[in-house]
Nucleic acid binder design. Structure first.
Lengths: 151, 151
DNA sequence: CCCATATAATTGATACATCAACGATTGATA
DNA sequence: TATCAATCGTTGATGTATCAATTATATGGG
């Protein structure tokens, strides 16, 4: 474990630690798990969508999405239904009232997000986002390379 | 949800996504969960330690640490024992042979870490680490402020 | 029309993290 | 010294993410 790698490992561990802390506080602040917020956020932006899209584009396993949706449906937060032309696909959208409630709640809670990224200039934010994207690209590339090389 | 918050929310979501991907590939590459690697890394750097230190300084719940250590002990990777002067504290250290194996394995696998952070200059790495630390600080500060304010 | 295949969603098994409660040991103090 | 509090580690209950297998539906080629 040489030095240049050690800095990188530190970044990796720090990334994990920050993410875990952030999720934890986020959940207590929003009153919902980050996964659930991610799903709701997607629905808020896309309106009515096929469940399959949700399952593909949200970074959560399809099985987990199914289970979240079942709970959200039971709570009346979302509605699910099929259309005549395809009995496989399930469509999902926010319940109207729930949507209004979520929009309002987002405004109240947006302060949390702003505070966790306080003392960042707009330029730094862009840089940060860019770095994250770069890591993301690297990760997906590494996978393909290593798929054959690893046991 | 105004614009400045939207960038921030995007960063948050991206942070999660990157972390999840990274962990997933990391695990298949290292053949051990990131939590376990974190524990082993700590032990590699600190030698013999009281279990309580491990539980405090590693970013994992104490109960989870206990369970990992039990498995690692069963596998012969670590050794646990008590000392005469305090029957509460348990001491933990890597098994000698396991330690050699891990050190060697780290060298083999360090390529993975390097590749995920490829195309980063040393300066960028420092910046990245600095940003993560800043977020970390902000998060812990926010918690305290909000403890009273949130329901 | 029949069959192979693809797609959509779900379920079961498993693993892990967290919280809360607990038992054991130690230290401090009245 | 008897008791109360603190510390250390563990366990049980719970929630959730993941993978693999499964069911139901749709589609395309012989």
């Amino acid at each position: 474990m040489n030095d240049s790698c050690s800095v990188r490992l530190q970044i990796f561990l720090q990334l994990q630690a920050v993410n875990k802390d952030l999720c934890s506080k986020f959940e207590t602040c929003f009153g919902a798990s980050t996964s659930r917020v991610e799903i709701l956020h997607y629905l808020l932006q896309h309106g009515e969508v096929p469940q399959s899209s949700l399952q593909k584009e949200v970074n959560i396993d399809a099985a987990a999405v199914t289970r979240h949706l079942k709970q959200l449906e039971a709570a009346g937060t979302i509605v699910r239904y099929k259309k005549a032309d395809d009995q496989r696909a399930t469509w999902v959208k926010l319940d109207d009232e729930a949507q209004r409630h979520i929009e309002q709640s987002y405004q109240e809670k947006s302060q949390f997000i702003e505070e966790t990224l306080a003392d960042f200039s707009e330029e730094e934010l862009q840089q940060f986002l860019h770095m994250l994207s770069k890591v993301s690209d690297n990760v997906s590339r590494v996978t393909k390379q290593h798929l054959g090389g690893e046991k």
